[in-house]
């Protein structure tokens, strides 16, 4: 029970840090002025066009595809697989579980391998491509290591040494209902959860902030109408 209490406290703290931290960053991004009209051309000339452009950025990583096919391939595979894996994990947070989430279970299971393959490609790139290795920081390696370790420990639970997922779900539901339930104490599970806690804590101060940051790119989210509408923001408004 001691273990359950410790993990419950850690999860509450990490969730608070994640929400407040990312919320704060989004507020900062939203308040940061983009004084210049700099959409990368050819750019959409209507707001609906910008929405479509951003949709393509978010779903198929259009800019990345245009700039580097290998990075796009590994990056896109990783992100899509991660989305499936996250959807699969939704079952722990829902009761009753949505039908889509139930149907996605078998796919999410194998998506974990695709996720690791994508990460392996992205990590190899940081060693094998000279120009990328030159600009690689320690934190780039650490984020990849963290995600890889989360993936491997998760696969460990699924394919090597099972945990009692019914108890685990009860623990998660207990956190959500403020009604503490015991957490199973299996090795892979505890490693997996600890790494996820670390991820939640570092998320608001890491490169992973590209998740909200993507939506604030002036070169992608601006309408190409400099002559029709005078653009003022920040010091250009004064």
């Amino acid at each position: 029970m001691m273990l359950s209490v410790i993990y419950a406290i850690l999860f509450y703290a990490a969730t608070l840090l994640l929400i407040v931290g990312v919320g704060r960053k989004i507020a900062i991004y939203a308040r940061t002025p983009a004084p210049l009209k700099i959409p990368t051309t050819p750019a959409p000339i209507t707001k609906a066009g910008v929405v479509w452009r951003m949709t393509k950025e978010v779903t198929v990583f259009q800019s990345l595809f245009k700039s580097n096919k290998w990075t796009w391939l590994f990056g896109w595979v990783f992100h899509v697989a991660l989305a499936l894996v996250l959807l699969r994990h939704l079952r722990y947070f829902q009761e009753p579980v949505w039908t889509v989430v139930a149907l996605i279970q078998p796919f999410g299971k194998y998506a974990a391998f695709a996720m690791l393959a994508g990460l392996a490609g992205l990590w190899a790139r940081r060693f094998l491509v000279d120009r990328v290795r030159y600009i690689t920081n320690l934190s780039d390696h650490l984020m990849l290591a963290l995600l890889v370790a989360i993936g491997i420990s998760g696969l460990g639970i699924k394919f090597v040494s099972h945990t009692d997922i019914v108890s685990l779900k009860a623990f998660v539901q207990g956190l959500m209902y403020f009604d503490l339930q015991p957490l199973p104490s299996d090795g892979f599970l505890l490693v997996h959860l600890t790494l996820v806690l670390i991820l939640m804590v570092v998320f608001p101060i890491s490169k992973l902030l590209h998740v909200p940051g993507l939506f604030f790119m002036p070169t992608r989210n601006q309408v190409d109408n400099p002559r029709e509408v005078r653009h003022t923001a920040g010091w250009t408004a004064e």
Binding site: E95, Q173, G174, Y177, F178, D179
Partner: peptide
């Protein structure tokens, strides 16, 4: 208010 809240759904 904690004990007033509904218990977590468990099987």
């Amino acid at each position: 208010s904690l004990p007033v809240m509904a218990g977590a759904p468990v099987p």
